[in-house]
Amino acid sequence: MNLRAVQAIYMNEMQRFFRTILQSFVSPVISTSLYFVVFGAAIGSRIETVEGVSYGAFIVPGLIMLSVIMQSISNASFGIYFPKFTGTVFELLSAPINFLEIVIGFVGAAATKALFIGMVILGTAAVFIDLTILHPVAMVLFLVLTCLAFALLGFIIGIWAKNFEQLQLVPLLVVTPLVFLGGSFYSTEMLPPVWQTITHFNPVFYLISGFRWAFFGVADVAVGWSLLAVAIFFAICLGLVARIFQTGWRIRD
């Protein structure tokens, strides 16, 4: 294992993050505050509680998941796409490193950034409402696994993308609907039965449900199913990355 290479890639990616630390920090704070003003104060005041949790608190896990998933994907996809775009990828290919080390460097950095933003949102939320986290270990576990799984997905998208439009396509057309329809802002029990069934095919639903359980001890599905779903999703992404590694798809002639 060329650990120095992993470190070099990781630090190089993190430096881009540090260069824009203010934006990285300020934008989630502002957007989270807006969500709380709109959903928490304006709408939440009429809903009162969902499954025994105040609506303002209820949306916190979904809000964190929404941002963390989007951030993981965009950081990782941009991270690997940019060297392809500028041509600097030649150096990664000619270096004494294997694909796994490249993946660990890029995905690790993307997940770290997303994790940081998740924490910022959590902190901002704590300013607006009283938050209790019933299962902090499970909460962190879900968060880290989600960051890693979606950073892997982002990495795959970055490898697949041939232009900047394609880079935006999957997050926009696939991930955003999945996250919104996964119960970020509502309990799926509020949905008509047909949609409840459809929701069960949405992997993000299990993530948000499990994550919410870690906060409040209430969930749409048993937490075991949530963990299994994250694990399966993680395994699929890992498998795809391994396949790309073997075939050199879209990176090596």
Binding site: R4, A5, M11, T86, G87, E91, P96, I97
Partner: peptide
């Protein structure tokens, strides 16, 4: 093939790093 926003010295440190 260079990342336009990167710094000259950082570039060399990075190259050295990925070569172990």
């Amino acid at each position: 093939n260079l990342e336009p926003f990167s710094y000259v010295e950082t570039n060399l440190h990075f190259s050295r790093g990925i070569f172990g």
